[in-house]
Structure formats: structure tokens, C-alpha cells
């Protein structure tokens, strides 16, 4: 690919020397370290004088501690990383009139957009790998447990899913930076999509589920099939959100005790009792099977998003560039 490496290299240099990147990584490292040390100290206290449970190490990432877990944090704020890295990638060059100059060099036109996406994805990968390593190091010191090979593998899958997830948001923001000429507009549009998927889709899902399968507030004398239907509708709609896809997939892959990505409804005392008899961790391969549809969907929406972005960019008349 002609020119792609040169542009990739410049974009990486730009990212690493930008204040934006510094802020993002400072924020993530700060929050990550705070969560990990809180959780780590909690585990230290609780597990004093007890045999260490299996997969204790992964608790560092999934345990909610006082506020939220690291996994939840990335699920919620990860999109912002992607958006910050991409929202002005094309229209900044357009505003500063460097894009037409760039395109009049002997390079493929798609090299510009490919290199920008790849550079953003590479930055995301570097930041995430770094923070997971930092938390792991901190965790080993605090709880004195070294991760086993299965835990390392689960973390690796978690990392890949996270990189994909944040790259999806990078794609969204690059798409808006291709469509809109003003950087403020593209930033706001990306944020609007983020807010929609993180807050409003669950509201909408609940509303639609109530409309299609109305269940009362009381819970007494409910029709079980209606409750199941209510739950199904709500699940299906919220699965449209990449955020749900991602958080379902990652919490399941990082918690071997979880047998399904779905929350269980109607946990009566007897059901609870019968379930607790099967409390043994799921093998890695089984966990992977459960989340495969989620991971495939994540890959698909990421590629779809970048594909649209690519098409729009390639078809734009140069005059408007």
C-alpha cells in the first residue's frame, strides 16, 4: 500500500505528542490504578487466613469494589477514547487545507483513511495493553497471586474484545469526521451516538418491552410466559447496542462462574439452591462458545462502520475535499 506506512507513522507521532492522548492515558491509568488498588486491598482483607479461591486474579478486573469495576469502566468510557482519537481525523485536514495536498501526492486515496484508522487502533491497543499490565503488576503485589495460564488467556481475549469495541467507536468518529466539515459537529455527533447507546437504548428497551409484554409492578400473580417475553424483548433491543454486546461478552469471559451472558429472571430460593450445586467454573473453551456470537457481532459492526466510512470517503468529490 503506497503511502500507508508514511501516513501511519505520522499519525502515530501526532497522537503520541498530542495533549489529548496524554489526558486520555492519564485518566485511564489513574482510574485503573485506583480501582485496582481498592479491589486489591479488599481482596487482601477478605481472604486473610482463607484458602484463595480460583480465578482470584480476574477479580481485579471484574470486582466492583466501591464504585465500579475496571471492565465496567472501559465499557462505559472506552467509547470516549475512540471518539477522542478520531473525531477530527479527516475534517481537521480539510479545514487546514492539507487534505487536497495530501491527495495530490502519489498515494492511494484509501491509504489516508486506512492509515488513520490503523494508527488510532494501534494507539488504543497500546493504551489498553499498558493499563492491563499495570493493573496486573499492581494486583500481583497486592494480593500475591500470580495469574495462571487460563487467566492470562482470558485476559488476552478480553483485551482483543476491548480493542475491537473501542475501534468501533473510532470508526464511528472517523465516519462523522468524513461526513461533517466542522470538527465540533463531528465530535458532538459521535457523542450523541454514544449517549444514545449508553443511556437511551436501555430506556427504550424497557419501554418497548413494557408495551409488548406488559407486566405489573407488583410481581404477584404474573404470567411466567409474559415475564419471559418481557425479558426477551428487552434483551433483544439492548443487544443492538455495542455497549451491551461488549459488556456481556467481557464479563462472561472474565468470570468463569458465569454460565450465560443473560441475567437470570425469577430466582426463587429453591432455584437458587439447585443452581448453587453446580457452582464450578466453566472451562475457557465453553466461556468462549458462549460469547462467540457477541465477539463476531463486535467484529462485524466494527468492520461495517469502517466500511461505510471508507465508501463515503472514497466517493467524495475532490472539490468538496
Amino acid at each position: 500500500m503506497r503511502g500507508i506506512f508514511t501516513i501511519f507513522r505520522k499519525e502515530m507521532e501526532d497522537h503520541f505528542s498530542s495533549i489529548r492522548f496524554l489526558l486520555i492515558s492519564a485518566l485511564i491509568v489513574m482510574v485503573g490504578v485506583i480501582i485496582a488498588s481498592m479491589v486489591g486491598m479488599g481482596i487482601q482483607e477478605e481472604s486473610k487466613g482463607m484458602a484463595k479461591p480460583t480465578f482470584l486474579f480476574l477479580w481485579l478486573f471484574t470486582s466492583t469494589g466501591k464504585l465500579f469495576s475496571f471492565v465496567q469502566f472501559i465499557g462505559f468510557f472506552g467509547p470516549l477514547i475512540g471518539i477522542f482519537l478520531g473525531f477530527d481525523s479527516i475534517n481537521r485536514e480539510r479545514v487546514s487545507r492539507t487534505l487536497s495536498k495530501l491527495l495530490s501526492q502519489p498515494i492511494y486515496r484509501d491509504a489516508v483513511i486506512n492509515a488513520k484508522f490503523l494508527a488510532g487502533a494501534a494507539v488504543i491497543a497500546i493504551v489498553l495493553v499498558a493499563i492491563v499490565l499495570i493493573i496486573s503488576g499492581l494486583g500481583i503485589r497486592l494480593i500475591g497471586v500470580v495469574p495462571g495460564s487460563e487467566e492470562v488467556l482470558r485476559l488476552a481475549i478480553y483485551l482483543i474484545a476491548s480493542i475491537l469495541y473501542i475501534s468501533f467507536w473510532l470508526g464511528i468518529s472517523i465516519l462523522f469526521s468524513v461526513i461533517f466539515r466542522s470538527t465540533a459537529t463531528s465530535a458532538l455527533a459521535s457523542l450523541a451516538v454514544w449517549i444514545f447507546f449508553s443511556f437511551f437504548i436501555s430506556l427504550g428497551a424497557g419501554f418497548l418491552a413494557d408495551a409488548m409484554a406488559p407486566i405489573g409492578q407488583s410481581g404477584a400473580g404474573m404470567d411466567p410466559t409474559l415475564v419471559v417475553k418481557h425479558e426477551q424483548v428487552q434483551r433483544t433491543i439492548s443487544l443492538l447496542s455495542p455497549m451491551t454486546l461488549y459488556s456481556d461478552a467481557t464479563t462472561t469471559i472474565l468470570d468463569p462462574m458465569r454460565k450465560t451472558t443473560q441475567a437470570l429472571v425469577l430466582m426463587g430460593p429453591l432455584e437458587r439452591l439447585s443452581l448453587s450445586r453446580f457452582q464450578s467454573p466453566l472451562p475457557l473453551l465453553q466461556s468462549l462458545f458462549i460469547v462467540t456470537p457477541h465477539l463476531v457481532s463486535l467484529v462485524a459492526i466494527t468492520f461495517l462502520c469502517f466500511g461505510i466510512c471508507y465508501l463515503v470517503f472514497m466517493r467524495q468529490e475532490i472539490r468538496t475535499v
Binding site: S96, R97, T98, K101, L102, Q105
Partner: peptide
Amino acid sequence: PENVGFYDDMDARQNLQYIARLN
């Protein structure tokens, strides 16, 4: 181009070198 643009946060040599590399 009319009103040519540059990468304002780079110096002249860096700007030219980028174009040279693209070529």
C-alpha cells in the same frame, strides 16, 4: 492549491519531509 495548507504544529522541514516520504 489555492491557499495551500500545512501542518501548523510542525516546522518547515518536517512538513517537507512528510511530503518527500509520501513521494
